[in-house]
Amino acid sequence: MFKKEETLSFLTELLSINSPTGYTHHAIHFLKETVDELGFKSETTPKGNLLVHVEGKDASQTRGLSAHVDTLGLMVRSINSNGTLALTKLGGPLTPTLDGEYSDIITRDGKVYTGTILSKSPSIHVFKDASTKGRDIDNLVVKLDERVESKEDVQNLGIQHGDIIAYDPKVVVTESGFVKSRFLDDKASVSILISLLKQIKAEEVTPSTNMTFIFSTYEEVGHGASWIPENITELLAVDMGCIGEDLACTEYDVSICAKDSSGPYDYEMTSRLITFAKNEKLNFAVDIYPMYGSDASAALSGGANIKAALIGPGVSSSHGMERTHVDAIENTFNLLCEYIKN
Rank of each mutant, 00 (worst) to 15 (best):
G39T: 08
S191L: 01
K201I: 09
N139T: 08
G293F: 14
D246F: 11
V315L: 03
E33I: 11
R135I: 11
L85F: 00
L184M: 01
N210F: 05
S318Y: 01
S216Y: 09
K341F: 01
C249F: 04
K198C: 01
L38K: 11
L90T: 12
H161D: 13
T324A: 00
F30A: 15
E234A: 11
N283G: 12
E101A: 14
T275K: 15
R147L: 11
E152F: 06
L87E: 02
N80E: 15
R272E: 15
V76P: 00
G224E: 03
A258H: 10
T324G: 01
E268Q: 12
K281W: 00
R272S: 15
K278I: 07
I200N: 06
S9V: 07
P93S: 05
D138V: 11
D104E: 15
G162V: 06
I137P: 10
V172Q: 11
G115T: 00
H29K: 13
S103D: 06
N210P: 08
V326T: 12
K120Q: 14
M75S: 14
K3A: 11
E203N: 13
G177Y: 07
N80V: 07
V190P: 03
T233S: 15
Q155W: 01
E175K: 14
V286G: 05
V52S: 04
G222T: 09
M291Q: 12
I137S: 05
K4F: 05
H25G: 03
N331T: 02
G73Q: 08
